[in-house]
Design a protein around this nucleic acid. Structure first.
Lengths: 232, 232
DNA sequence: CCAAAAGTGTTGGAGTTACACCCATGG
DNA sequence: CCATGGGTGTAACTCCAACACTTTTGG
């Protein structure tokens, strides 16, 4: 008989850094502090439906390219008053959209969070770490990028999300070898200072796919499929 | 205002195969079908405390070497009657213990489940997959093995859990290079048909440690620590 | 022709698989 | 001394990081 709420750390790469969407509480408890968007779970919806509805309603974020569960936060005293159990989500918004936001809502760099309400400061790093891990072994980059992009752009997205410089050279090679990237055939015009025009690419799939499931302990070669469609 | 329950897929390698602990329901709904152990979340405990308590109480499993959250299952109609939201866990029991079980409780191979209650048949494969993934990039093997073991024994555990043959040669090398395994100095007596006595090993740490966090996209070498203590 | 940005070639090394070979023990 | 299981040495392979080099544009 506990209230169940859903919360989302919605992440987007903005201005070269990974940022999270927060709204500032006007009322107690924790008035003035910043809070993850979300709200109560309704009786007729599951948690993912609920967080998608609440994000659409409250902060007008509809262009989520990826949503996944992070964890349940259930310490009995995690919020003051009656107990609330929370299911936390990671949400991703591609870099080519800029949703209209209510007055009290703003993006904040993940590495420089303001004072947050309740246990929300624990949830944001969890979301960031999940994103970083999945960028390495899945095609999750599609959720940060727009439909078409240059390798330079993609490099900036990966660098911002991972927190360190990624080489464009090797990024393109790794993603191409895995079959995640394909050229569109067209090119982007060069900038004002010249330079060779960049080829445009897109992700071959836009749903989450695990491309490198095993760091080690791969199954023996004779009953393992070829590179393109890996186990399992 | 939904009831919240906790459920655990408790896994152990038994008789060469990965098995899960289930109890057979006596009463409706789903009488006769097999169910994951668990129960209602109490107001004064968080979900992990709760699942540990319920496993200790109901099936007398106290020797859990590892417990972690899997996911929330929240479809409004996942159980008949009033709504119940469930937090599912993965639990691991080392191969050297054999807990006393109540009458209605038994181990079942993960690959040959009986008819299960509700959505529990979805939870068990999720637990298995999580275990398989973490065996590759963490030291989670400690949770399947006893305090001391031979490489042959460890090979059987990994083979059963992963579902394919693992070479003892390479298993030892990989785990040793990562610094997860250390020899105890003593040896196990050979079997009835002779053979060289096997050296005994232990895991150097018995808490979960991520040993291989990045499949690719490692940070540049100059700001990356050496092999032993990897990022982050 | 030069600067700038994009893209390719190539080398080297880390980590792993596969397999041949050597070691220690019981009958 | 031979069968049996345990352990080591080593070659080949996959994948990736690093960096030099080439290509294509604007001034």
């Amino acid at each position: 008989m506990a209230v169940h709420e859903v919360l989302a750390a919605v992440l987007q790469v903005r201005a070269g850094s990974l940022q999270v969407l927060l709204w500032q509480r006007a009322l107690a408890p924790d008035a003035g502090r910043w809070s993850l968007p979300g709200g109560k779970l309704r009786p007729d919806e599951d948690v993912e439906t609920s967080i998608r509805r609440q994000l659409a309603e409250k902060v007008d974020v509809r262009q989520l390219t990826h949503v996944e569960q992070l964890a349940v936060f259930s310490a009995p005293d995690r919020v003051p008053g009656a107990r609330v159990v929370a299911t936390a989500f990671l949400g991703l918004v591609p870099c080519d959209v800029d949703p209209a936001l209510p007055e009290d809502t703003a993006w904040h760099p993940v590495e420089a969070l303001p004072e947050t309400a309740f246990d929300h400061d624990v949830i944001v790093p969890r979301a960031r770490d999940r994103l970083r891990a999945k960028l390495s072994y899945t095609n999750l980059g599609f959720a940060l990028a727009g439909p078409e992009f240059t390798v330079s752009t993609l490099r900036e997205l990966y660098s911002a999300a991972l927190g360190y410089k990624v080489s464009a050279t090797n990024l393109q090679r790794v993603l191409s070898r895995r079959g995640l990237l394909e050229p569109t055939g067209s090119t982007a015009p060069p900038g004002p200072s010249g330079g060779r025009p960049a080829a445009l690419f897109r992700f071959t799939a836009r749903g989450l796919q695990v491309t490198d499931p095993f760091a080690v302990f791969r199954p023996p070669a004779h009953n393992r499929p070829a590179r393109s469609a890996r186990w399992p």
